[in-house]
């Protein structure tokens, strides 16, 4: 696979680790519940019950849990792709809808959702067209983004010519293209093989390090959550609820060796033990 190009661009500031615990609250989730009515007239399904959570600015936070725990639902509520049955979500004091309409979210889905009819460059370009950005500005930005994910040589290719891992990197480039303030990732690596996934995890940390965005990362993979996050929010199913929030104090930047330290395994054990009712 293509190696990442780490050339620094002025726009991406180096993250200052000495000061990584920022205090600003980015997202505040208060007493949020989500109930889906059953389509066939059966019992309604409670996807989330009384969720409370504060996410700090610049934080990498994972929502971890088995299927049915409501982690994707919570992400979609923050993204304003769903509206909660009760409770309140604020993003920097605004509603998720305001933030979405201002195009401040970048979302990466479970599959890359590339448009087959557009080349890689034009796929990354798409959200910028929606923002009405000027063409010269778009072109420069696309180049910068493809450089960031190490796919500059593939700009003229069509999606089907790329591997699954490369396609997902295009998805990340597209999400970052409009300079979102919050990056929402919904199991972005779950369809990839273990090798590609571990590679992309390191790449993602490197990109996060450069861009300093708040990242909310949904996963069902414990080791992935521990490796990436500042904090892991453990969700349990039936009904979906927060059963633990675990701070991950592993030093950054993290590399492959980090996965073999005893601390890493301690965190995994701790998280595994915190699941309820699975």
């Amino acid at each position: 696979m293509e190696a990442f190009n780490y050339t620094d661009t002025t726009e991406f500031m180096e993250r200052d680790f000495s000061n990584s615990k920022e205090t600003g609250t980015e997202i505040k989730i208060e007493n949020v519940s989500m109930v889906f009515p059953d389509k066939n007239g059966g019992e309604p399904v409670t996807a989330l019950q009384n969720v409370n959570l504060e996410i700090k600015q610049g934080e990498f936070i994972s929502l971890l849990g088995p299927s049915g725990c409501g982690k994707t639902t919570l992400l979609r509520l923050i993204a304003d792709l769903l509206q909660p049955t009760s409770g309140n979500i604020t993003v920097r004091g605004e509603t998720p809808r305001d933030v979405r309409l201002k195009k401040k979210y970048g979302i990466v889905f479970q599959n890359p959702v590339l448009y087959d009819w557009r080349t890689i460059r034009r796929n990354v370009c798409m959200p910028m067209e929606l923002m009405g950005m000027k063409k010269s500005e778009r072109t420069a930005r696309v180049t910068k983004m493809l450089e960031l994910v190490g796919l500059l040589d593939f700009g003229k290719h069509y999606p089907y010519e790329l591997s699954g891992g490369m396609q997902q990197r295009v998805g990340i480039a597209r999400a970052l293209a409009i300079k979102p303030e919050i990056l929402l990732m919904d199991e972005p690596f779950s369809a990839l093989d273990e090798f590609t996934r571990e590679k992309l995890q390191i790449d993602l940390l490197r990109i996060w390090n450069k861009t300093n965005k708040t990242v909310i990362f949904v996963t069902h993979n414990i080791s992935e959550a521990v490796f990436l996050s500042d904090r892991v929010v453990v969700l349990s199913p039936h009904p979906g609820r927060v059963s633990a929030v675990v701070d991950i104090d592993l030093p950054r930047p993290r590399d492959m060796e980090c996965r073999q330290t005893p601390e890493f395994f301690d965190y995994m054990t701790k998280i595994r033990n915190s699941f309820e009712g699975v």
Partner: peptide, 24 residues
């Protein structure tokens, strides 16, 4: 899957969804 969600997340209008997604 998620193609509509993607457009919605960028607050795309119905017209943009039609011309940039549905038609092609």
């Amino acid at each position: 899957p998620f193609a509509r969600d993607l457009m919605q997340s960028y607050a795309a209008s119905e017209k943009e969804v039609f011309f940039k997604l549905r038609l092609p």
